[in-house]
Design a binder for these strands. Structure first.
Lengths: 359, 359
DNA sequence: CTGTTAGCGCGTTCAT
DNA sequence: ATGAACGCGCTAACAG
């Protein structure tokens, strides 16, 4: 009781460094120095200050500190949905790496809305985040491109690194780091697996071609066919959403109208594969005995399905970690601009959803 | 070209409101007013300012703005792992509700480390977050309790709301909001389901009793047994981790040593149930024909398993949304302290993993 | 309607 | 080793 504080004792009146200084009977400068620990202070004085801090339950004000030039390093990660198994694995990687390096990690969800992504990037500019990491497909609008470029330059201007995960560069005038994984190689490898098992007519349940992910995977599929001397059948190539229901619906439609036209299905994501599997199951089609099925991403679900899904492993967590690492290393000058494009490898995980075709 | 800026043109030199003012040939106050939009400004002046802002690609500095009293409202959500299906659903709810109300959402992962949770709460104090939402079990250490209390009071002092999701209150002297769901009721209901199907010896694969979640669920189990006049067998109650491997290992051990002692398994989470199912499958035990199995949480996985898992639905997304809503409503005076404890309902989702017992 | 100016809380010279 | 004073970029009185 009785210490005279300047304001009424209500809430909202946060303690300042001055309160601590008064209580410890030192100047604010001394308190600042004790807290920062970057300057010699007499042991006894330090004790007094620390005691006052504890007794008052004081913490610094981040904003004031930032304004004075000492920033709380923050890494921002932007994705469309935290619940998505693959991106959440990337988020986990970002989180771990950021924390390990003493950075705060901020996660934002866009629900696929480009506007929100842009707004969030602006916000990060305002907050002077040390890095902004973007993941997930984008429509490659010419109009959006311009806005991205502008904001990206703004980020660069405040020393904030922009990292694009599996996304096309914004052009030479926008300094950004790119981390991706080998979509094409993975698709090639798993298509090869089907081909080696005798499959020739492979239904391709793809995503939208605006997404570079889809482009890469489809490319791998085609290259594998070409290498096996199989002429691709364009009518077997489908485009749709990367969702379970999309996989279900599309497969059901094919079973009704195009049954017999294919012996295997390549689903562009495990989620789509899960939907496809459910449709096959509902139609009484056995996997892999009647139809073989492969996915892509190797999310946990892949080994929960029955049969366990043969798929392509994508190192999502590593993707997140790498993004953070590159951003920080570059900021601290431990890396040259030249290192700023990394492609992580993918590989096939063989499980039980592919059968050798006997004809 | 040739506008004279005060610093060398390198990076790191962010634009200030003054740059904009100079370019628009107005005072900084006018720029501030245009940007805030909370004060009359002549249309022509506004135009000039906006043009300068665009041309310069300027954004405000959050920290300076915060220091001057205008905060970017931020909601912080703390959980152990973004990849966990149930908590990530809660995170999604938090995200959505926060964004919908114009708040920034910050997500932090602790990996189960209480120290990190505490550190993060401190950080949020420093950042003056408008709300901090905690989810996940805690060990109810007397020592931790004290530290939580201290930080919680600190949060309160800066007007930051603390919300505990499914976690015991920190005591009457710590103002906090609690949102939980009915663990006991759900466990009661699903146990009842097993009992109604004739099961009497139900192996209980539980979590650690330090977690209130486990306490609640076990309570429901016991109450259901009591209501059916079944004497509980303490040796059928197991405690362990909430992981898939734990479920697998524990079930395997039981199959080797205690087979025949139970006709059904109640796994305290779907993850544990998934592990149990795998163990049963590997041992050639059919579900539900030989052994019935139920879980808890109703994560997506529950309907991917074969057989589809009968489980208790927990409204995780709603939990997150409610947490945010309560915090904001209270801050804005739209709610009284009395409303600050909400219990959401749970219900059984009947699928295919329980069979009627014929003996 | 617009400009001037005094803080917001902290880090950091420069004196002492 | 410690203290006094200025400035970080912005908002909000107060004048005009």
């Amino acid at each position: 009781m009785g210490t005279e504080r300047r304001s009424r004792g209500t809430h909202e009146a946060a303690l300042t460094i001055r309160d601590v200084a008064e209580r410890a009977e030192v100047s604010v400068a001394t308190v600042s120095r004790v807290l920062a620990g970057n300057y010699p202070v007499a042991a006894k004085t330090r004790q007094r200050v620390m005691r006052a801090v504890r007794e008052l339950n004081y913490v610094v004000n981040t904003h004031a500190r930032a304004l004075a030039g000492v920033r709380t390093e923050t890494v921002a990660f932007v994705l469309n949905d935290v619940r998505g198994p693959s991106f959440s694995a990337a988020a986990y990687g970002v989180e771990r790496e950021a924390n390990q390096r003493g950075r705060l990690c901020l996660i934002c969800t866009t629900e696929g809305d480009q506007e929100r992504e842009l707004a969030f990037m602006q916000l990060m500019r305002e907050q002077q985040a040390s890095a902004v990491i973007l993941i997930g497909g984008v429509r490659d609008d010419e109009q959006y491109r311009e806005r991205y470029t502008e904001i990206a330059q703004g980020l660069h201007a405040v020393g904030s690194r922009l990292v694009l995960c599996g996304r096309p560069s914004l052009g030479a005038d926008v300094p950004a780091t790119t981390v991706e994984y080998d979509n094409e190689g993975g698709a090639y490898a798993i298509t090869t697996n089907l081909l080696a098992n005798g499959h020739r007519r492979i239904l391709y349940l793809g995503g939208m071609l605006e997404h570079t992910t889809s482009v890469g995977r489809l490319l791998g599929y085609h290259r594998a066919l070409a290498d096996f001397g199989v002429a691709p059948d364009p009518t077997l190539i489908e485009h749709g959403e990367f969702t379970r229901v999309s996989g279900y619906e599309r497969t059901r439609a094919w079973l009704q109208q195009g049954a017999g036209r294919f012996t295997a299905i390549f689903a562009e994501t495990d989620m789509v594969a899960a939907g496809a599997l459910a449709a096959l199951e509902d139609a009484g089609v056995r996997v892999p005995d009647d139809i073989s099925l492969v996915g892509y991403d190797d999310i946990e679900l892949a080994s929960d399905l029955r049969p366990r899904l043969t798929t392509v492993h994508v190192p999502y967590e590593e993707l997140g970690r790498t993004a953070v690492r590159l951003a920080i290393d570059l900021k601290e000058g431990r890396s040259r601009e030249g290192d700023q494009h990394v492609v992580l490898g993918t590989h096939v995980v063989v499980r039980q959803s592919v059968a050798r075709l006997h004809h």
